[in-house]
């Protein structure tokens, strides 16, 4: 929730810190010199054209992608090849995917309790109670015993959010959470994410939903060609974009002349 310059700079409070991060796919330079600090409780929206590296960026945070140069420190743990640290980070970082990736052979409730039981070693009754609470909060408790294939897209994504929350993460990553949904279901998922933001969760959201960015984000990051081109608070970002490429992108997205 902090937006002041000073808070954002205070080292130990940073939730995520990217320093000089580069990544290559083969010879394709997909992330170029990324420097970004995400404070605790801050909500970042990352936008940009496809192929700009925004998904790659957040997937580096929980090591689904591996960066080749620079350092990424998540919750005071640096991400290296050390498996123990990676597991530590993954316990504290939750991720919601564009394609939901729910486990089709388990019920919604079982999807949610799987990790708490097997990773946090929670007793089953406690896990069930916590999962039910979270499913209630995303308003699909009545689907708890159904299988993912029996739910609508919007319900599935909300279930995926609940599943990630069941691990009580400190940071939540969203990779284009509404891009695979029919238009009428986008709102229910965005509402869920907004409620989450209001509770103070640190979030990085990759999305094209500019309304959400305006309403919820503390800062908006525009990426293009693997580099961060511009970042600012939402109001100045949308009203007075500075860089040419930002203006071009916003033109295309918002159909407004800059």
């Amino acid at each position: 929730m902090s937006t002041s310059l000073a808070d954002a700079d205070r080292g130990d409070d940073a939730a995520i810190r990217f320093v000089g991060v580069h990544k290559w796919y083969g010879s394709f330079h997909v992330l170029r010199n990324i420097n970004l600090t995400v404070a605790r409780g801050e909500r970042i929206v990352v936008c940009g054209p496809s192929g700009s590296g925004k998904s790659t960026l957040i997937r580096c945070v929980n090591r689904l992608e591996v960066h080749q140069r620079g350092s990424i420190v998540v919750d005071n743990v640096e991400l290296t090849d050390d498996i123990k640290r990676i597991d530590e980070v993954r316990r504290e970082v939750g991720m919601v995917f564009q394609n939901f990736n729910l486990f089709p052979h388990l019920t919604i409730l079982e999807n949610c309790t799987l990790a708490p039981v097997w990773v946090r070693k929670m007793p089953r009754r406690q896990a069930d109670e916590m999962a039910s609470e979270l499913l209630e909060r995303v308003r699909i408790l009545n689907q708890a015993h159904k299988y993912p294939g029996q739910l609508s897209g919007g319900q599935q994504q909300r279930a995926a959010i609940a599943r990630a929350l069941c691990m009580t993460p400190k940071i939540m990553l969203f990779d284009e959470p509404t891009s695979s949904l029919d238009p009428e279901m986008v709102k229910e998922v965005l509402d869920t994410m907004t409620a989450l933001a209001q509770e103070g969760m640190t979030m990085i959201v990759v999305t094209h939903e500019m309304g959400f960015a305006r309403q919820v984000a503390d800062r908006v990051v525009f990426m293009d060609g693997g580099e961060i081109v511009e970042l600012n608070a939402p109001l100045p970002f949308f009203q007075h974009p500075q860089h040419e490429r930002t203006k071009l992108f916003l033109n295309q997205i918002l159909h407004v002349r800059y």
Binding site: F97, F103, A115, W118, V119, A164
Partner: peptide
């Protein structure tokens, strides 16, 4: 995406294989 989701939840490779 299935094994990615399992990994993102913190399940290590053995558990991810076995349960998912």
């Amino acid at each position: 995406g299935q094994s990615e989701a399992a990994g993102a939840l913190g399940l290590h490779r053995g558990l991810s294989m076995r349960l998912v």
